[in-house]
Simulated scan of single mutants.
Amino acid sequence: MNQKLDFRLVNDRALQSIDSVLNSWLPGGKRQGSEYVVANPVRTDSRPGSFSINLNNGVWCDFATNDKGGDLIALVAYLDRTKNGEACKTLGQFLGIDSAIGAHDHTQPSTPPPPKLKPPSPDFEPVRPVPASALKSCPTSIRNLGKPSMYWDYLGEDGKEILLRVMRFDNATANGRPKVLICIQY
């Protein structure tokens, strides 16, 4: 009798244990940022570089052959040369979980929801409209660059409030460039 498999549960748990999964099926790889890079054992691959697995979501690809998959079950199926259902069972056994649907209490999610984070409070509170005293102090030159050959003020809806000033310096030698544009936002 065929039983339905809980692919989502197995993938979620595999992602939670991605280091042990990858070290078991693909030993000798190394982390490079959010990727696990390793030589592909399925083909003649003398050094790592073209075969990588995303450590955040399990998506993998061999860029030399264009073999790819969307999760760790597909990776195990590819490496073991089997079908996804068999790979789901194998990975479930490796993780110590029953891969059958209904074998688990689904009243709790298979992965806890991420904690809700408050957005960071800004270091400053913008003042609108910009006070007239601040507009008078709007720079008309930049130290080390001198006075701009031109500048453009982008005004608010009232036609008076400066929201942004773009200055052009033609004779500047910053980084060896003949022209520098600088934007100042208010």
Rank of each mutant, 00 (worst) to 15 (best):
T107G: 02
V127I: 15
A87T: 05
A132C: 00
S110R: 06
F124R: 13
K116D: 00
I73N: 02
V76C: 02
I142C: 11
F94V: 02
P112G: 07
P113L: 10
K147W: 04
I101M: 11
V130H: 00
A132S: 14
E86H: 12
C138P: 04
F94W: 08
L145A: 12
I101T: 10
T107W: 02
I101D: 04
K83M: 09
I142H: 11
A87F: 07
D105M: 08
R128F: 14
S133M: 06
G96Y: 08
K147M: 07
T107H: 10
P119K: 13
P122C: 07
Y78M: 04
T90Q: 14
G92R: 05
I97D: 06
P109F: 00
L135I: 06
A103F: 06
L145I: 05
S141R: 12
S99R: 02
P122I: 06
H106L: 14
A134G: 01
S133H: 12
D123W: 07
R128A: 12
P126M: 10
P112D: 15
P126H: 08
R81A: 12
G85C: 03
A74I: 03
L135A: 09
G146M: 11
L75N: 03
V76N: 08
K147C: 08
V127T: 15
K89M: 11
P119R: 11
T90R: 14
G146K: 12
A77S: 11
N144W: 09
Q108G: 08
G92M: 03
L79W: 00
T107N: 13
G92S: 03
Q93V: 13
S121A: 14
H104I: 01
S141M: 11
S121F: 04
D98P: 05
G92I: 06
N144T: 15
I101Q: 13
T90P: 05
K83V: 13
T82S: 15
P109I: 01
L145M: 15
E125Q: 15
P139I: 11
I97K: 00
H104T: 14
T111I: 14
A74P: 00
P122E: 04
T107P: 00
G102V: 08
E86L: 11
S141C: 11
G102L: 04
G92V: 05
C88S: 07
P113M: 05
P139R: 07
V76A: 03
C138D: 10
K89D: 07
V76W: 04
L135R: 14
P115I: 09
C88E: 01
Q108C: 02
E125P: 01
Q108S: 10
P122D: 04
K136W: 04
S141F: 13
A100N: 12
P120W: 07
F124P: 01
P139T: 05
H106K: 10
P119M: 09
C88W: 01
D105Q: 00
P119I: 00
I97Y: 03
P114M: 07
E86F: 08
R81E: 15
P112C: 02
D123A: 14
L117S: 03
R128K: 14
F124C: 09
L91T: 03
A134C: 09
P122S: 13
V127L: 12
P131R: 00
